[in-house]
Write a protein that binds this DNA or RNA. Structure first.
Lengths: 214, 214
DNA sequence: GTCTATAACTCGATAGAC
DNA sequence: GTCTATCGAGTTATAGAC
């Protein structure tokens, strides 16, 4: 958790995670990381015990980037809590386009490759997942009575993540953006239906105030 | 496509795919495959040109197993077309339980690891994905007017696959079945809403006219 | 903290007898 | 078709000078 205050260390973390989350952990050699970071072998093993240690530190590093890189820009661009969620999903779509459809959720990619082989990595990936979902759940909480009263916000946040991960996987594999859009569109339909249910609940039990629908 | 009529070849394909889809392609060595199959190096390279060739042949092999292993048993156990889809999702849940929550969709796992590194592999994985979706789409077609008239069955099939892949990923990473169940439950809710919409369409136009609300 | 050189090992793939 | 022995390249990690 303590920031290293070393440029070399951060260069290594950045280079390693870029490679691990795109090429894969096993497919990335130490030599690849040294080349990309412009650092020598001796320095790497001065800061990190092993390739595994580099991965684990990188997963901690990624967690610190989640809010400022993924969430904050989209939350600032959109004030409506429900639209914030779809803004995040549009951000992933943009990455897909920018990477010529060769993009995956970095955590999702590592989750499948090393998620159960290395228990320490699994825990850290799970923490990243949980943080992502927590931000989405906060949006759902902020939506207040625009969603059904008895709807569990946490499980809906899980569902949003499910859709993001599954949709990216198919779009990348088919090299076809429409697979992503189709899934997000169905999620949007589901949200519309939930919002309609919530509106009906409010009409049915207006708390002495006037009912107002969206 | 022509069956090899060789026991050794099939033993190699089976062993290789079991390892590739669980440990991963890069993490599996030729030595691992030889050990598991009980075959020697010379025989492997008699039947296959390389590790890559073994993967590509394995992906073809997997395609032939999709219907008899994954779909048919569930379709036979359940006659209702919509319930057939949820029976398939329950089958994946069962795998998750049987593997102590260390289970992933074999194709999803390979899609993320080698899906874009090897173009030939990507194509074959996409073919497997398409076949899976096609079976689901057939169920949706069979549901007829129990789903809304203007609903695109193909995109809904994509959405079903999206949910399966994303839900498995989270359940495995968290080692917690409830992440799978939560996502499937939301998919079930979505289906219920769609079925309600379809029922309303039918009531509205039974054969003549009728008042409509909503 | 950083550098070069290299140890120790595993990898995919091959050779050639049978 | 199957076997054993092994090659050469590439792997992670270390040693020791600076």
């Amino acid at each position: 958790m303590a920031p290293p205050a070393s440029n070399t260390r951060e260069k290594l973390l950045m280079a390693a995670m870029e490679l691990f989350t795109t090429r894969g952990y096993e497919a990335t050699s130490i030599a690849d990381i040294l080349e990309r970071s412009g650092v020598n072998s001796g320095s790497l093993y001065y800061f990190f015990d092993s390739k595994q240690d580099l991965l684990l530190s990188g997963l901690d590093y990624f967690k610190t980037l989640l809010y400022p890189i993924v969430m904050q820009p989209n939350f600032e661009a959109e004030s409506d809590p429900i639209e914030r969620i779809f803004a995040v999903l549009a951000w992933y779509r943009r990455n897909l386009v920018l990477c010529n459809l060769d993009y995956e959720c970095p955590m999702g990619k590592l989750a499948l490759e090393v998620g159960r082989h290395l228990e320490a990595a699994r825990e850290k990936i799970a923490i990243n997942f949980a943080a992502w979902r927590e931000h989405i759940r906060q949006c759902l909480d902020d939506a207040g009575n625009r969603l059904p009263r008895d709807l569990d916000r946490a499980t809906l946040a899980t569902f949003v993540m499910t859709v993001m991960e599954g949709a990216l996987m198919q779009a990348r594999t088919h090299r076809d953006l429409s697979f992503y859009d189709q899934s997000v569109q169905h999620l949007r339909s589901y949200f519309s239906q939930l919002q309609a249910q919530a509106a009906a609940q409010i009409r049915r039990l207006p708390r002495r105030k006037r009912t107002n629908t969206t």
